[in-house]
């Protein structure tokens, strides 16, 4: 009788195990993927694939933030000029909570010396579109932060179960499955080499001034996650820097607010909005779209400025003479940029 019961229990465990394996297999297959072409992999599934393919503890700098980050910072350009290795982890309209979760995950395999946090989303108190949240969330493992997020989401659309198990959200993709979905399951996707940046030469003339001011309110939630980022960086001995990428979608009050938080947390604050001339940005040619993102020309100028800042303030080793992988990637990257230059 006891042997029978043991057998039944064993069978039950095997059944559950097989279920779990199959569940995660199908989840990986069915979940939405943003496998973009190599030049557009920023803030997409490819960005995480590339990040995870990097050698452990090989990064010097990490850039976090919204779409301004992946349009405005070009880590390969910085590497080319200084030999400093960097990566941009940004997402469209990414709120501080998701940025924190990104950082938490990123620091599992890398311990950069510096983390730059773009403060563009300081006042975001709205939930981003569901798909944009899934872009980030679905790449993150099950952590206490993810659980917390799942049960505190303010969106009608985002159900806890969908956040924790994207299978339930994307199960109906079965009729849209393509080659990349299967390649993704088998970890067989081509590696990319643009370090989270988005290369574009689209250009639009813009005006450069503060927006008409609005009431500045820093939500408890945002402040809490900024503090958590600071704590996490302190624990790992990482220098956190707050900065604002120069884009015209910015308010004076938010700039002041960001400065206050920086002072409160004792974090350096780089307000690059005022440095447009010093960076050398041309409002006629260096922006991709009106009032928003930098294009490749602008990104190169900003990256050069940031490279100089890092070199001036921090003593980071030039990896160019020794880092074979990055040098190879740089050659491929340069070819790609050349291809993108409008003829």
């Amino acid at each position: 009788m006891q042997v029978m019961n043991k057998k039944k229990v064993l069978k039950g465990i095997c059944f559950v195990l097989i279920f779990v394996i199959l569940f995660f297999f199908f989840q990986k297959l069915l979940q939405a993927k943003w496998i973009a072409s190599d030049s557009e992999n920023s803030a997409s599934t490819s960005a995480w694939i590339e990040y995870r393919s990097l050698e452990e503890n090989s990064l010097d700098v990490l850039f976090l933030g919204t779409s301004h980050s992946y349009f405005g910072v070009d880590p390969m350009y910085i590497y080319d000029r200084t030999g400093i290795t960097g990566y941009v982890f940004g997402g469209p309209g990414l709120r501080m909570d998701l940025t924190y979760m990104n950082l938490e995950d990123a620091l599992k395999t890398q311990t950069p010396s510096i983390v730059f946090l773009d403060m563009s989303s300081i006042q975001f108190d709205f939930q981003q579109e569901e798909a944009k949240c899934h872009k980030v969330l679905d790449q993150l493992p099950m952590t206490s932060s993810k659980l917390e997020y799942a049960f505190n989401t303010e969106s009608e659309e985002m159900k806890p179960l969908d956040v924790l198990f994207p299978f339930f959200r994307y199960h109906s993709r079965w009729s849209d499955l393509g080659k990349n979905d299967f390649k993704y399951v088998l970890n067989d996707l081509d590696d990319t080499y643009i370090r989270g940046h988005y290369i574009t030469y689209q250009s639009k003339e813009t005006e450069f001034h503060f927006y008409e001011d609005v009431d500045y309110v820093l939500t408890e939630r945002n402040l809490d996650y900024i503090k958590r980022m600071k704590r996490l960086c302190d624990e790992k001995g990482i220098q956190l820097i707050f900065y604002k990428i120069p884009t015209p979608t910015w308010y004076e009050s938010q700039s002041e607010g960001a400065k206050e938080i920086a002072e409160m947390l004792d974090v350096p604050w780089l307000e690059l909005f005022y440095e447009v001339d010093e960076i050398g940005l041309d409002v006629k040619a260096d922006f991709r779209d009106k009032n928003n993102h930098l294009n490749q020309r602008g990104a190169e100028k900003l990256s050069a400025y940031l490279a100089e800042y890092i070199q001036e303030h921090y003593d980071l080793e030039d990896q160019r003479p020794t880092n074979k992988k990055w040098n190879e990637d740089l050659i491929r990257y340069k070819k790609l940029v050349e291809l993108k230059i409008p003829k």
Partner: peptide, 26 residues
């Protein structure tokens, strides 16, 4: 046999989970 039996049961479970009409959008 157990292999066939479980294959049928798992096929049923995952058919429901994948092809079922539920969740957001439905």
């Amino acid at each position: 046999n157990i292999v066939f039996r479980w294959a049928v049961i798992f096929a049923a479970i995952f058919s429901i989970l994948i092809f079922g009409i539920y969740g957001l959008g439905y």
